[in-house]
């Protein structure tokens, strides 16, 4: 049966997965509404920039970005775990996904930043 014992990390990730799910549920709805119903077509760079000039929207989008990436990658990791890989495989996958996640978050925020400077890219 192997050793059983407390695994705080597991509980933490499980909990975070639920929290990000709630963020996604609300955040995606807002995101969808704002993009599709509040901005007149066509969507132009200026219109997007105008919105992102307010720090509130910048924070909102960043949080949404982090939530999406965490939730997706953690979900992917859980799927892998369901196939009972060896401990070493799990470790490698876990590291790869962490690196990928951090990279995507940094890259996403890196893309968001230029919008915030008047005059633009």
């Amino acid at each position: 049966m192997g050793n059983r014992g407390r695994n705080v990390g597991l509980a933490f990730h499980w909990y975070l997965q639920r929290i990000t799910a709630i963020i996604l549920m609300i955040g995606l709805f807002v995101h969808f509404y704002v993009i599709h119903f509040t901005i007149d077509r066509p969507i132009t760079f200026e219109k997007v920039q105008a919105r992102l000039l307010s720090p509130g929207w910048l924070i909102f989008d960043s949080i949404l970005l982090i939530a999406v990436i965490y939730h997706a990658l953690r979900g992917f990791y859980n799927v892998i775990c369901d196939y009972n890989p060896r401990e070493s495989v799990k470790k490698i996958v876990s590291w790869c996904l962490t690196v990928l996640g951090i990279f995507l978050i940094i890259y996403g925020i890196y893309i968001l930043i230029p919008f915030t400077q008047v005059g633009g890219v």
Binding site: G2, R4, G5, R6, N7, L10
Partner: peptide, 9 residues
């Protein structure tokens, strides 16, 4: 709780 909080719990 410790008994069941691992990955097979």
């Amino acid at each position: 709780l410790a008994l069941v909080s691992d990955e097979h719990g």
